[in-house]
Simulated assay, not measured.
Amino acid sequence: MDNLDLSKTSLKQFKKIPIYVVEEHNEALQFIYSAIGGKKLPLEGTTLVHLDAHPDMLIDRKLKGKDVRSGRKLLPLLQIENWIVPAAAAGHIGRVVWLRPPWAKQFADGTRVIHVGDHPVTGLLRVDSKEPYYMSDALYSAQLKNKRKFLLTVAELSGVDEERIKGISQDIDVDEPYVLDIDLDFFSTANPFINLYKHIELYDRLEPIFGFNLPQLDDEESCENFCASREQHLEELQNLFEHLEKSGDLINYEGPKTNLYHKVNQLKEVVKAEAERLGEQPDWWMIFAGGCTRDQGGLPHYISTQEEIKECVTKTLKVFLKHMPPPVLITVARSTEDGYCPQDQINFIQSIVLQIIKEAYNTDEPVFHYLNSVD
């Protein structure tokens, strides 16, 4: 028996499975860390079963590897899209099972091994995965220090056929102990950037500015060169939009007047004219954030009907949970304040999801953490 098995046998148990409901998804990690501290989860190698319309598996490009190994000090450094891989880099999460709705296709289905660690020169956290999801943010590096391995399994969870859903639960082959993590935007997904200055089709205008072409070869040198170029591209865009956010114009911009500068300058004129027509000031940082989602065709967007939501929860989710072992704890993210789960649907989705969870497992009363959160 290895050390991990020994640590699992000595774990303490909750009397009832706790449920924590958060607003922003990265807030779920504090409860996972608390369970590790309370010896309810092993220090290393926990499996995260993650139902979400988004993988949440990016890395903040400025995050240092040493910061992910600083325990709970890491938590304030994370955002909704990048909270899982840092926990894997610290060793706490050894496997991620991303269960996606049909309209979310950021990763291909299947299982792969990913290594995460420190870039040997910069010390920044990077992965050795060449998938577009990571290449688009210049997060690839073949050379890693303080390297950790984690397993990523991706599968579509959909349909109402019990045998098929049972097959999915068997195929992913999840062992205890694990964390069940559900983002409510799994059931109905909005892309909050689509309606940003929709009259001028801003979201589409951002694609040629923020887009990229993957290297034709996927050898180590080509990928490293691409990431260096892409990093420069993203850095320049960030500088341009930071300047716009501060001054509202690029007249006094001191950076190089590159082709990218001219593209952003042209966009600025169109956006300012539209904002003036609407009687408002442009939110340049929001526009930059929207542009950063224009890789791989943009974010998923599918607003489900109430009937579709009900069927997915009471049939798909219910059957899936029935064929899964009980998790150690359950985290639920609302993701509505940032626009990813529709505001007019969130309470309906939350109530029926919590009801199905209670029917499936011996759970404690949910802790509504989002009601106590303060800015």
Rank of each mutant, 00 (worst) to 15 (best):
T305N: 09
C292F: 03
I287K: 06
H262M: 11
I287M: 08
V313E: 03
V270L: 14
A289Y: 00
F288N: 11
F320A: 05
Q306M: 10
T293P: 02
K315N: 14
I303F: 11
R294A: 02
V264A: 03
A289E: 15
Q306T: 07
G290F: 00
T293V: 09
C312R: 15
H301L: 03
W284C: 01
Q281M: 12
N252Y: 13
D295Y: 14
D295C: 03
R277T: 13
E276V: 05
G291S: 04
G279M: 05
D283V: 00
W284R: 01
C292W: 02
T316P: 03
I303R: 14
G291H: 02
Q281R: 15
L260E: 12
P300N: 06
N265T: 07
Y302N: 09
I303L: 13
E274S: 08
T305R: 05
E274I: 01
H301F: 08
E276H: 11
K315C: 09
G297E: 05
Y253N: 04
K268A: 12
T316F: 02
E254F: 07
P282G: 05
N252W: 06
V270E: 13
N252P: 05
E308R: 07
E254Y: 09
F320Y: 10
S304R: 08
Y261M: 06
Y302V: 01
Y302A: 11
A273I: 04
E274A: 13
E280K: 15
S304A: 15
Y253C: 06
Q266E: 15
G297M: 06
E311H: 04
Q306R: 06
N265Q: 14
G290P: 02
R294W: 10
A273L: 07
D283T: 08
V319N: 08
P282N: 11
K268I: 02
C312G: 05
Q306H: 08
I309Q: 00
R294L: 03
Y253E: 04
A275G: 01
P300V: 08
G297V: 11
P256Q: 09
T305E: 09
N259F: 11
E280R: 14
I309D: 04
Q296P: 02
E307D: 09
G255V: 12
D283S: 08
L317F: 02
G298Y: 02
K257Y: 09
P256Y: 11
T258E: 05
A273S: 15
D283N: 15
E269M: 10
D283A: 13
I303S: 08
V313Q: 01
E269N: 14
Q281C: 05
K272H: 01
V319D: 01
W284K: 00
G298V: 03
E274K: 01
V271I: 14
T316D: 01
E280S: 12
V264W: 04
V270S: 05
H301N: 10
K318M: 06
I303D: 07
S304N: 13
K263W: 07
I287Q: 06
K318Q: 07
L317M: 00
W284N: 05
T293G: 07
G291L: 06
W285L: 13
